[in-house]
Amino acid sequence: MVTVSGDWLTRPSTQAVCRMLEAAGYQALLVGGCVRNALLDAPVSDIDISTDARPDQVIKLAKASGLKAIPTGIDHGTITVVADGIAHEITTFRKDVETDGRRAVVAFSEHLEDDAHRRDFTMNALYAHADGRVIDPLGGLADLQQRRFRFIDDAEQRIREDYLRILRYFRFHAWYGDASAGMDPDALAAIAAHSGGLDSLSKERIGVEMLKLLGAPDPSPVIATMRQCGVLGHILEGADDRGLAPLVHLENTLEVSADPLRRLAVLGGQNVSVSLRLSNKYTQRLREMRDAASGVMGAAELGYRHDADLAVCALLLRSAWLEMPLPKSVMSEAKRGDQAEFPVRAADLIARFQGAALGAELRRIESRWIASDFQLSRDQLLS
């Protein structure tokens, strides 16, 4: 018998929520990412519970137990029950009645099998009792052991139910799949045939999935496959993934943490921020990275003019595009520039310069100071 364990499962709050349902005669089954990640020894964050209890019954039981119940998705059968500050998403067993590729009309069910068949991938249709015993209604354990991602039942039908599953397939494969084994050919054929359905999704949803995908340890094989089957160009016109693998290699060499935005910057493309509906903050940072990378400034000057993090990002991008090595010293150089303070102020020059001439002189002196590797003193610069 396969079991799962971990603090996420045995903590009193989660056990109390499960007991709340079971004591009333209902099922309480942990499901999806928490079970999958526990079996893969990956971190568990979100706690999802499937049950045959209806939403109104879940709310009633939670209140009787002194727990907070929030109807976060009551139309789709989901109630968030908060215990000890930890959110537990409890969803009634469901089966799809009608779908249009963006949203589904669902009916509640009393059968676990109905709930399992409406999920996306076999690896995500794994359930577990509160004591850790795993239920595998669709053969997901075998796929998980081989790190193989497969759509449940018919791939084309699963995609037509929700076109976001195209990107979720690639995202999950990037995080948990076996890159050396390749991807399921039936899945890729279905994706290629229905990639046009991505046009029906909101750009925000696409952007969220892309950033999650790019945060994987090495998303380059998956992104290359997305390009080959036409998905990458569909969502990011003009994107070029040739610099992604070199960038990931450089990040590992310098022991720099993965940055989805940096990896998005190396892909390029037209109107990226619009295509993915990025926030103003992300849009500005993306532009700063690419602008700094396209110049010739060294690590110290980039650190001084921007900040150490952006300086390292810019140099990583530049080296990835040019397929050139990058010494580890860029980290300390960028930090040194970030901490440097220009010793001359406008007040030092105001007696001799005014208006535009004052600004020009400040810039000239600053350039001398940077060219001296930040070594010239205030007196030397003013003499």
Results as ranks from 00 to 15, higher is better:
Ala28Lys: 00
Gln15Leu: 08
Ser377Glu: 11
Gln15Pro: 11
Cys229His: 11
Arg364Tyr: 09
Ile350Tyr: 15
Glu22Val: 09
Asp186Thr: 15
Ala130His: 12
Thr99Pro: 06
Val231Met: 08
Glu204Thr: 15
Arg364Asp: 02
Thr122Trp: 10
Leu198Thr: 02
Gly197His: 04
Gly230Val: 10
Asp373His: 13
Pro71Phe: 08
Leu278Cys: 01
Met183Ile: 10
Glu161Met: 13
Tyr163Met: 10
Thr122Tyr: 11
Asp154Trp: 00
Glu161Ala: 11
Val222Ala: 01
Leu30Trp: 13
Pro137Ile: 04
Ala192Ile: 14
Ala258Asn: 12
Val231Pro: 01
Ile159Ser: 09
Arg352Asp: 13
Gly337Ile: 00
Met1Lys: 14
Gly32Lys: 04
Ala371Val: 08
Phe149Pro: 14
Arg363Val: 10
Arg171Met: 10
Glu209Pro: 12
His117Lys: 14
Leu261Lys: 05
Pro343Thr: 10
Thr283Phe: 14
Ala300Pro: 08
Glu209Tyr: 09
Leu141Met: 07
Glu366Ser: 07
Gln228Glu: 12
Gly196Ile: 07
Gln284Ala: 13
His76Gln: 15
Val58Phe: 06
Val266Ser: 02
His88Trp: 06
Leu138Lys: 10
Gly32Val: 01
Asp338Pro: 08
Glu98Asp: 12
Ala351Gln: 14
Thr51Leu: 00
Val231Phe: 06
Asn37Gly: 11
Ser332Leu: 10
Ala64Glu: 15
Tyr26His: 11
Val266Arg: 02
Glu361Leu: 03
Asp307Met: 05
Thr283Ile: 12
Gly233Cys: 12
Ile90Phe: 06
Leu278Arg: 01
Ile223Leu: 06
Asp48Asn: 10
Gly140Tyr: 04
Ser45Gln: 15
Val58Glu: 03
Gly85Ala: 04
Ser220Glu: 03
Ala293Thr: 02
Met20Phe: 09
Glu366Arg: 15
Pro185Thr: 12
Ala155Asp: 01
Cys34Trp: 00
Arg262Asp: 06
Val44Asp: 04
Val344Asp: 03
Arg287Pro: 03
Ala16Ser: 11
Val330Pro: 02
Lys335Met: 13
Leu141Ala: 07
Pro217Thr: 07
Val17Ser: 07
Glu361Val: 04
Phe93Glu: 06
Pro185Asn: 06
Arg160Ser: 08
Thr91His: 00
Gln284Leu: 15
Leu138Gln: 07
Met289Thr: 07
Ser383Asp: 15
Leu326Asp: 00
Gly233Ala: 13
